[in-house]
Design a protein around this nucleic acid. Sequence first.
DNA 1: CTTGAGATGCCCT
DNA 2: GGGCATCTCAAGA
Length: 219
Amino acid sequence: MIHNHPGVSRQGGSPPTFPLKLLRSFYSRPAVHVASDLLGKVLVRRLNGRNLAGTVVETEAYAGPHDLACHASKGRTRRTEVMFGPAGHAYIYMIYGLFFCLNVVTDHEDFASAVLIRAIEPLQNVDVMRKQRGNPARENDIASGPGKLCRALAIDKGLNGADLEGKILWFEDWQVPPPLISTSPRIGIDYAGEYRDKLWRFFIQGNPHVSRVKFNGRG
DNA sequence: CTTGAGATGCCCT
DNA sequence: GGGCATCTCAAGA
């Protein structure tokens, strides 16, 4: 896995050190590589003049139209349109009528693939995130799941297609040591035939903010 | 700690 | 009309 990828840049006006905003070249690679390399990066959501931020601790790769778990495997539709566009944009959809899921578009244009952001560890303006989640008692209930983190960061379909090089939603590299990564099959895609068992879920080993799978273990 | 069921609405056939 | 890349709550061990 590539941890010191060159696809980062200083933000204009920021000190000449860190953080480094991830650039489109970071996302313009196979989804599996982007998914593992996003662990340890920081997701930032600009909201009402504040930055809500958290460390990415769990992702899943949806590798392309051949991947039967990938929404794009059913063809180009209104919902999946942005996945067929250039990398480095947000693909956001509603699930179960209640929740939103945040993905980043990867690889090259017309090769529809993405990485689902499944969990983050709250880092900045945690109080705001907690409140938007209904004030859970434990910090690891704030954003330990794809629907939870969207609610904590006020991410909905209005941000579908957002440019991750823009000023609403982006990822940063804080140059922390590379995390210890574990893998597993992806969650909730038992229908995906030969792709069901691919080890395309990535998470930081032992991190308490990783989503709970069927209420056992934590990875 | 665990399990099971219900909520709820959009997308696509 | 069916299915869904989820979450919460109540209840049991």
